[in-house]
Structure formats: structure tokens, C-alpha cells
Amino acid sequence: MATQNTKTLARLMMAPSVIALLVWMVIPLSMTLYYSFQNYNLLTPQNVSFGGFFNYQYFYTDPAFFTAIWNTLILVVGVLAITVIGGIAIGLLLDQPIFGQGIVRILVISPFFVMPPVAALIWKNMIMHPSYGVLADIAKFFGLQPVDWFAQYPLFSVIVIVAWQWLPFATLILLTALQSLDGEQKEAAEMDGANFVNRFIYLTLPHLSRAITVVILIQTIFLLGIYAEILVTTNGGPGYASTNLTFLIYRTARLGYDVGGGAAGGIIAVVLANIVAIFLMRAVGKNLDK
């Protein structure tokens, strides 16, 4: 296998992918880094000048920045909490012998395949709309005042939509992990007199821990970049109430034409994402060694 010939060949075969990704990573990132130190606005492209740390300072002192960071945090943690807890519960449910298991599974995982703009629009118009949404219909049925979700609870509404999209992912992975739990182990625990709660705490949860870690880390990567759901529903508002970091940078860069400011925000986002990434790489890397 590992003769000299195959080694050379192997290098040649990896080269296209490696080079493509290297270019795709290095060039735009270094451009972002460069722009982040420039005063550069697309509306006045002739006035480009070195700005030092001005963009960072500008971004950092903007009150919207902290709102956005805070919103990002709430969004990520909120969705993670809902999906992980919900995922475990539904995973346990689907692990029971039930009639029509295959169909139930299909129904449960379906939201994951719905493209973000569609998911957001369905929820916005048909479920959470203050006058015509299903939730409003239900409220009216009980004689209650319908809630204007996106005006009153914008961030919460976004969390609900995103959680709905990612719940299937968490469920599917946790269910897969549950099904790999050794039947003999479960039986041994039963023989040892462990009841359902004890089996869950001492057997199931430790067994799930790695899958839970993976769910948390992978979802975090995607959740940090939530964009289309916000664009389509609240457009970040009212004010900055549902603006996350991604959306703030998009606003600065594309709507404000501020290349320098957007780039500085981008670099901050990279730093934050890296912190998360380090943990993910560790978890996945460990698995590689097995």
C-alpha cells in the first residue's frame, strides 16, 4: 500500500481540494483583515484611507454591538436548550416500540429539510401572524387577545422557528445514539434493579454524552450564522431587538455600504467562532483516534 508510488499519487490527488480550500480561506480572510483597518465605504469608493483601529472601536462602541452579541447568545443557548432537551425526550419516545414508527420518524425529521426562508415564512404568515395565524385562531377560540409575536417577542419568535428547524437534527442524532445503547447493558441494569429514572441517569445519559456534545457543537456552528430566518421575519427589528451578530454585520456591510466596519465585525465573528471551533475539533478529533 504505502509504496513510494502511491504516496506521490496520493499527494497529487489531494492537491486540488487542498488548494481550492486554501485559496477560498486565505484570500477572503486576508481581504477582510485588510479592509477592517481601512475607511472604505462603497458609496464613496474614491475616499479609501487607513483607519487604524477605528472600525473596531466604532463597532465596539456601537450599543447595537452588545445587543447583537447578547441576542446571538440568547439565540444559540435558547435553541440549544430546546433542541437538546426536546431531542432527548422525542428520541426516548421514538425508541419505544410503537405502531407506525417509520412514519412517525419521517414526520419528526421533516422540518430539517425545509429551506430556511420557507420555514420562516410559514411560521410568520400561517402560524404566528397576529390576525390570520393558527395561534391567533386558537387564541380567539378561547376568547383571548391574539399575540403579535414578531412585534412583542421578536427574538423569542425567531428562536421558536430555528428550534423547530433543528429539533429534528438533535432528535435524529440522539435517537441514533440511543439505538446503539447495548441491549445487554440495559438488561443487566434491569437485573441489578435499576428503575427507569436510574437507568436514564446512570446508563442512558452517560451513553448519550458524546452525541449531546456533538449536537451542541455542530448546532452552535450553524446557529452562530443564522441569517435567512431573521431577514424574512423581523429583518432584525424592531430596532435591534432580533439582530444577531451575523445580521448586524450584514446590515453594516450591505445596507450601510460600510466595508471597513463590516470587516471589523467579521473579524470579531471569526474570533468568536474559533473559540467554539476549538472545542468542536477536540471532540471530533478524539473520535478520529478511535
Binding site: M14, S17, V18, L21, W24, M25, I27, P28, L29, M31, T32, Y35, I221, L224, G225, Y227, L245, T246, I249, Y250, A253, R254, V259, G262, A263, G265, G266, I267, A269, V270, L272, A273, N274, V276, A277, L280, M281, V284, G285, L288
Partner: peptide
């Protein structure tokens, strides 16, 4: 190399939005 490839997936898209847009 595999881990590095994975790490490119973790780069927030928005961070390179402008360069990509301009390119």
C-alpha cells in the same frame, strides 16, 4: 489536513461576505 478542512467550514460566512461580494 482533515481537521483543517473541517475548520474552514467553521469560518462564519458573514466574515467574508464583503470580500466575496467584491470579488
Amino acid at each position: 489536513i482533515l481537521m483543517w478542512m473541517l475548520s474552514t467550514k467553521m469560518m462564519p460566512a458573514v466574515a467574508v461576505l464583503l470580500p466575496i461580494y467584491i470579488l
